[in-house]
Design a protein around this nucleic acid. Structure first.
Lengths: 211, 211, 211, 211
DNA sequence: CATGAATGAGGATTCATTCAT
DNA sequence: TATGAATGAATCCTCATTCAT
């Protein structure tokens, strides 16, 4: 592990190397699965020696945690919900969900494939992911839903389950796409709006059929 | 492998033994993950010797395929859609989806957890599962949606994506529950109706706001 | 193991079953090698159940010893050397060696292939085979050679090595044939006389070019 | 497997390690037989870890092929037959055969014991050995015999079978010695000349008793 | 005696991890 | 820091052998 502290150039280098390894790990894990993939394959894919991995990660599992952290950082990047009150809520949500999907596309489905697989296999990782990613997202989303409901923008019956339904739908669609569904692959750009439409029907925006 | 052919009692015995092993495998795999679990642990859980497993399954992977087949058999059991025309479509669908969820509960979430995890990790298994379970289900569902649309029972915009959205939602909710979401666990009995409601909003039953 | 003692019909049956198993073992062992062959394969080849083998042989190794005993019985069947003195020694030896080769052909090369292979691999079996088959043969042959020499039929320089040379030649030719040499296979019937000719040259029959 | 290419020192090291392992394998296989010997025993005998074997050989069978290749290299090393024309053919052949026997002694009987045993057990290895070692040797020997016959040095009846007889004799004597024959062991140094004498009798050098 | 399912010891092989260079 | 050879624990699987039916 690097020792010189606070050398910004060193830091940059280390970070770059870590990312280089994580990129390689993502590809290899996505292709062969975490357990079937060997550290040698990851090293080869990264163009480095096997031992070098251990200068940047404590062990193989740490590679997985590294991927999970990448998702964390990207997913939980604070969003600007402030403008929610202004303008049409449907437009706002469309923009918001589209952005999330773009982030997803940017990260690559492979990362999710790899992380989800291990999450389902490992109860500790499962708990970790739920606490670090899922739950915070749900809490934030719930807050906004409640606020909108209080502000009378939407009529909301059950924010708890609503949020989980939306989240589940997103998650499920991602998995179906990972599984190779050709329709979802071809029309993936339509999916965000589809989700929002269903979402808004569910939450029944006030005034839709009102007046 | 047992050889005496066409002895129905023998067949029953073999089937029972196979199920005994698959039950044990489900528990062990769900707890430790497929790869971290050892055949010895499965044997211990089943109360048999390690070698006995190999009298009934070719290898460890075959255990996984055995679990997948169990899902196949249960999931693809032909349903009685015939009554669809009669009575209220909402009631029919509610009953249908509820039944599917009961089947799921009966199979146990562990099976899905195990199978899904490996499906995400193994591209061959992924293709197999998609072709054997997902696609057939989608095709059947699409047919019914189209028929209902033709019969004027519902107004349907996009059966392809609609079916995938519903399927994805179901899948995603299952995964969120597997991940330990306490709300979904506590109110799992409400979920089927929730799904149907969203589903029916999407497909817009004719005459909902009509008259 | 059979218990009724001295029942000749039983004995015959037991013997037949043993031979049935040994025949199967010979074929299977010759094809796959002793260690690679499984008792299940032997049982299948013999058309019996795996367990039945153990009613007639203590274990897998005993099958090998059974094959070795078969060779013993056939090889060491007392020969009629008595006529040696009378008639031409070359004719006598030709007849004798031809008979040995016929015995060999009758037993089948497979048996030798199997037994020799294990003999080379296992020092205990090696010693056993040497003491039970090779050495007695050599001793008998030596005796005859010496007697012939004393009787003035042949002029013999070194009976010890001569006998070993002849024996080695026979053994080596068998092995070359087992290895699939096409010439030896095609002209195997010429081989006995060839051996005898070399043999007689070596021992230099008195009067060959004498007087 | 070591990868740095074209580093001659590295190459030497790798070769040395391979030989170290093959030497250990020879001893262990000769003592317990190929199948009864474990890779652990080979590793212990070589003074390395079990896994290290697999850095140099693909699997246990590859160790055997390594031994066979050693024989190949030594056996097929081009010999200097050129001097054949000059000098006495008997002297030349004596020198030649003696040299072959010395090579054999140098390689060690154990290697032959091990390789021959498996050759007899495995039809693929058998074919390989015949094609790579036996047949080439026979072809070369035949060529020399024919040339000598044409040059009138010897009178040759049947080069094909003659060569096989000589080869078989050599092979058989080796096996008898491996089997522990005390006479052959004690007088092994006499054996080459013995073989040559028989050989030359068979091919009947022109002018032996001629004129 | 015949059967063949159950057994479990044994062994080849893999691969994450270490560490001397 | 980078390397990659060495390590050896861990595990899937085979198969000779047993024994209840």
């Amino acid at each position: 592990m690097p020792r010189k502290k606070n050398d910004p150039i060193q830091e940059q280098f280390i970070l770059a190397r870590r990312n280089q390894i994580l990129d390689a790990a993502t590809q290899v894990f996505a292709t062969k699965g975490f357990h079937r993939a060997t550290t040698r394959e990851v090293a080869n894919a990264a163009g480095i020696a096997e031992g070098t991995i251990y200068n940047y990660f404590a062990n193989k599992t740490a590679l997985l945690l590294g991927l999970l952290n990448r998702i964390n950082e990207t997913e939980l990047r604070p969003q600007q919900y402030e403008q929610a009150a202004h303008g049409d809520i449907r437009d706002f949500l469309r923009a918001h969900v589209r952005q999330r999907f773009e982030v997803l596309t940017h990260l690559g489905f492979e990362v999710f494939q790899v992380v989800l697989s291990e999450i389902l296999a490992d109860s500790k990782l499962r708990a970790l992911y739920y606490q670090q990613v899922i739950e915070p997202t749900f809490i934030i989303a719930e807050q906004y839903f409640r606020r909108w409901a209080e502000e009378g923008v939407i009529r909301l019956r059950d924010p708890r389950l609503a949020v989980r339904t939306i989240g589940g739908m997103t998650l499920g669609l991602i998995i179906l796409r990972i599984m190779g569904d050709p329709d979802l692959e071809a029309r993936w750009h339509e999916v965000p709006d589809l989700v929002v439409d269903l979402l808004l029907v569910d939450v029944e925006p006030v005034g839709r059929d009102g007046s």
